[in-house]
């Protein structure tokens, strides 16, 4: 059971039971993207409102809302992601996403930035609550649950017109 307790840390269950930023935003002005986990049927909807997309990397996430349904890992990851992204710049959100995916041993380049370094190089302290999801790596089939929200975030950033960092 110790592996299970490592997977389902209390903070994860807390975000699952009381998801942060749950709801919808009006589109437009907000942008919206949907993500699906085709294996287990989990669905995530991310609504994103930037202060000014023209500012590119320096645009600030004014508001973010999460919809959809799924398991505790996918939903808590989305909840924690929304809390971590709100009020931060696009550049900061990208760094956070890179650090998170690195923790999940995912190295693709979906946010347009370059993910450098091995997972052990990642600074878990920057992830805050999200570091609680590190136990997921021991359960490879669940990694897609944890990263679903982040892949959807990459899509909604593209929708909002800040797809590339250069």
């Amino acid at each position: 059971m110790s592996d299970l307790e490592d997977l389902y840390r209390e903070i994860i269950l807390d975000h699952y039971r009381s998801p942060r930023n749950r709801g919808e935003l009006a589109v437009p002005p907000a942008s919206r993207a949907e993500g699906f986990n085709p294996l287990c049927g989990d669905e995530i909807v991310v609504y994103l409102q930037l202060d000014d997309p023209a500012k590119g990397d320096e645009a600030v996430v004014q508001d973010i809302a999460i919809g959809g349904q799924g398991c505790s890992i996918s939903q808590s990851s989305a909840s924690m992601m929304s809390a971590a992204a709100k009020g931060h710049t696009v550049a900061e959100v990208r760094e956070l996403s890179s650090a998170f995916k690195s923790m999940m041993s995912v190295h693709e380049d979906e946010l347009g930035g370059t993910v450098a370094g091995a997972p052990e190089d990642a600074d878990l302290s920057a992830l805050g609550d999200l570091a609680a999801l590190r136990g997921v790596v021991q359960f490879p089939v669940r990694i897609k649950c944890a990263t679903l929200a982040w892949n959807t975030l990459a899509e909604v950033l593209a929708q909002a017109g800040v797809a590339t960092s250069e």
Partner: peptide, 28 residues
Amino acid sequence: IHPHDLSQVLNSYGVCVRPGHHCAKPLM
């Protein structure tokens, strides 16, 4: 309890069940 989480706990007892939409999303 979400089926995916339920199945994960069942797995720790050696019980193999399948969570998900079972390739039948219209039925879901």
